[in-house]
Write a protein that binds this DNA or RNA. Structure first.
Length: 108
DNA sequence: CAACACAAAGTAG
DNA sequence: CTACTTTGTGTTG
């Protein structure tokens, strides 16, 4: 699912930064059944070291409807804090999309 | 300025 | 292997 020009304008208008827009676009481009690491996202938007900023941005997730943040994981295959303690949501979501989990890690 | 849904390399166990 | 520390980046409070 790709973000449309209209949506982008909407994002900018929502008070997001350029960095955010790119993060959201990249995240929205992740195909079903696949995952992308924070690092890959950061690299894709031009700041390979801003992986942390990516996480911060997704955490604030302006559009949870359009942005499947559960497809964004850590570089070593772990899910990250999205799963947290409130229950295995990220894991279940990913598994439902065809991503296999191996002992807390995404299948490599 | 401090914290954060991170990464990588170093040290310690 | 896990856990903790430091450095780097951008957003949030």
């Amino acid at each position: 699912m790709q973000i449309r020009a209209k949506t982008k304008i909407m994002l900018e208008r929502s008070g997001l930064t350029r960095f955010q827009i790119k993060v959201l676009e990249e995240t929205a481009k992740i195909p079903k059944g696949e995952v992308r690491t924070y690092k890959e996202i950061a690299k894709a938007i031009g700041s390979p070291k801003a992986y942390r900023a990516v996480g911060t941005s997704l955490r604030k997730n302006p559009f949870p409807i359009k942005i499947p943040c559960h497809r964004v994981i850590k570089s070593d295959g772990r899910l990250g804090k999205y799963s947290g303690k409130s229950g295995p949501r990220k894991k279940l979501l990913l598994e439902s999309e065809g991503v296999k989990i191996r002992q807390g890690k995404v299948e490599v």
